Computed example of a mutant assay.
Amino acid sequence: MKQCCLLLLFLMLTGFLSSCSTVLKKLYGIEDLKAFDPVKVKESERYMTDLYPSATAIISSDTSFKKFIDEFSEFNKNDVSQPIQILYFKNDSLISYHINCYAKGSLNGHLNWNYDGRMNSYPPKSAVQLSVRKRLSDLISIYEFPKSRESDVIVFFWSTLLNRQSKEAFKVVVDNIENSNFPDTNRKQIIIINIDKAYL
């Protein structure tokens, strides 16, 4: 199940030098990240806000993402430093947590976020064991986004390092909400946080 993480780590360590690495990199949608590209980030944000217009987009500084890693350090450090992370909060409490390492990889280069039927219901079954109590207010203190009037808030960390995978994961999140047939009065707030600057 962690083959995607191991592949990502291998490709990063080898610097994508071999032709084999180049093919695998393209297959899994891993992109070079040599400088912050506001145009590419904005294009992906637009894709996400077109899917879910009420989403709030934030660009994280390196410092803020490090604070997030420290604040959530009770989890595996490898988990909280991944390029795609999806955190579901209800009434301020973390109730479901997903990262790219726990989405099952496939030979066609796509990630199955519904592995083990996790996305068959809302909230999705957590991919990461929630043995610690973490709160949305912990993230609000770092990123200073406004406290939601909604009881449910989804925080979506993403990077253009995995741009295609990020878009696919976000669509899974939106589809999961829409397939649960919530009335318009019970919309979920989604906070989209780009972490490219933390990876440079």
Rank of each mutant, 00 (worst) to 15 (best):
M1I: 03
Q3M: 12
C5W: 11
L6K: 15
L7M: 15
L9A: 15
M12D: 13
T14W: 06
G15K: 13
L17G: 08
S18H: 13
S18M: 03
C20E: 15
S21P: 09
T22Y: 06
T22P: 04
V23F: 11
V23A: 10
L24V: 00
L27E: 07
Y28L: 09
I30C: 02
L33D: 04
L33P: 10
L33Y: 04
L33S: 04
K34L: 07
K34W: 02
A35F: 04
F36R: 01
K42D: 08
E45S: 01
Y47K: 06
M48R: 03
D50A: 04
D50Q: 07
L51I: 00
A55F: 09
A55S: 11
T56A: 08
A57Y: 05
A57F: 10
A57W: 07
I59D: 01
D62G: 00
D62V: 01
T63C: 05
T63M: 08
T63L: 11
F65S: 07
F65D: 04
K67Q: 15
K67N: 09
F68Q: 07
I69E: 11
I69P: 06
D70T: 07
E74S: 10
F75T: 04
K77W: 06
S81L: 08
S81Q: 11
Q82P: 07
P83C: 13
P83W: 07
Q85K: 10
F89A: 01
K90D: 08
L94V: 07
I95D: 00
S96Y: 12
S96M: 14
Y97A: 00
H98V: 14
N100Y: 09
S106N: 14
L107C: 12
G109I: 14
H110P: 00
H110D: 15
N112V: 13
D116C: 09
G117C: 03
N120K: 10
Y122D: 08
Q129H: 12
Q129L: 15
L130V: 13
L130H: 12
L130W: 12
S131G: 14
S137Q: 09
D138A: 11
L139T: 09
S141R: 14
S141N: 13
Y143G: 03
Y143P: 06
E144Y: 06
F145T: 05
S148D: 02
S148T: 04
R149W: 01
V155E: 01
T160V: 04
L161K: 05
L162G: 08
N163G: 09
R164I: 09
K167H: 05
K167W: 05
A169C: 02
A169H: 03
K171G: 05
K171R: 11
K171Y: 03
V173I: 14
V173M: 02
V174P: 01
I177V: 15
N181H: 15
F182W: 14
D184C: 00
T185H: 04
T185C: 10
Q189I: 07
I191T: 05
I192N: 08
I192D: 03
I193H: 01
I193Y: 02
N194G: 10
I195E: 02
Y199F: 13
